[in-house]
Write a protein that binds this DNA or RNA. Structure first.
Length: 282
DNA sequence: AAATGAATACAAATTACATCA
DNA sequence: TCTGATGTAATTTGTATTCAT
């Protein structure tokens, strides 16, 4: 990850966004704090010359999209999938149970096939085997993945939280999921996608800035080349020599290595030459 | 102390679906 | 009504890091 960020010339820092959050860390601290912490600063490096130039704040860049997304909509024949899922999944008090009811993909090895990731997800309860059953209960096609649209309130809360910190520790994720009636996995995915969108937007801004820099440099180069041409033309004209001071030659005494300046038209010998004849070295 | 594998979190790329013009 | 474009939720894959053995 760090390598990729370096390619973009983004600076890295170890400041952890979780530290900014008043919520204490969970009893078992997340294992990847350092890695999780580096990204927000590379994402929102401050101060960004690109951002300053463009006068685009990271929140402004998404207000339109977020607002559009936040529009309440019904779909699938007027059935709000979000609500349907909510009813099915949210009757347990245990945090782990909050992630039940994952809609699985037919391609998803994560959810349906045993493996490292699947084991992990079963362990932390983010993806559970009950999902397919719930989909069937839902009356939907178990083989298709359905997309929910976040409600206006959900989107707004997520957006506000993202403004505070662009990554979540497990406790924050759970709390947010509970608050919004979403699965923690959905919260996690939303934050991942949101970070990706932010980075994309920032890249676009950076590209715009670099493009302008390139234009300016091209223009400057053109100007300097013209200046060179003009100077060369001036040098070749007779008037140029008429006003020129005569060239100066430097002469060095072969014995004492004293250097003397001699103006070209007079061609007077240097002072040291007249002083004493040079004795040939034996 | 070094090597190794498992667990975890994340970015990046991609897919799939909903919505709109 | 159909269709292509667009936005985004969700999935897949690869990688870095941490920790236990």
């Amino acid at each position: 990850m760090a390598k990729k960020d370096d390619c973009l010339g983004l600076s890295l820092s170890l400041r952890c966004p979780e530290n900014l959050n008043p919520d204490p860390l969970p009893p078992t601290p997340p294992k990847r704090l350092a890695a999780a912490a580096h990204f927000p600063l590379s994402l929102f490096r401050s101060p960004s010359p690109f951002m300053q130039l463009q006068k685009i704040s990271r929140t402004d860049a998404f207000q339109t999209a977020a607002a559009r997304q936040a529009e309440p909509r019904t779909f699938l024949g007027g059935i709000d999938i979000n609500r349907t899922l909510t009813v099915v999944e949210c009757d347990g008090e245990d945090e782990d149970e909050d992630e039940e009811g994952m809609v699985t993909s037919p391609n998803s090895t994560v959810s349906s096939i045993s493996g490292k990731r699947n084991e992990r997800e079963e362990n932390d309860g983010e993806r559970a085997a009950s999902s397919s059953m719930e989909i069937e209960e839902d009356g939907g096609d178990a083989a298709s993945r359905k997309k929910l649209r976040l409600s206006k309130v959900q989107a707004a809360v997520l957006e506000e939280t993202f403004k505070e910190h662009s990554t979540l520790n497990p406790k924050q994720k759970m709390g947010l999921a509970k608050k919004l009636d979403l699965r923690p996995r959905q919260v996690e995915v939303w934050f991942q996608n949101r970070r990706a969108r932010t980075k994309l937007k920032q890249t676009e801004v950076d590209c715009e800035y670099l493009s302008r820099c390139c234009e300016n440099l091209t223009e400057e180069n053109r100007r300097l080349q013209k200046e060179v041409r003009d100077l060369r033309a001036l040098k070749l004209s007779p008037q140029f020599y008429a006003n020129m001071t005569p060239p100066t030659t430097l002469t060095m005494c072969p014995r004492c290595e004293h250097v003397a300046c001699v103006a070209a038209p007079s061609r007077q010998p240097p002072t040291w030459a007249a002083a004493k004849p040079v004795e040939p070295k034996s």
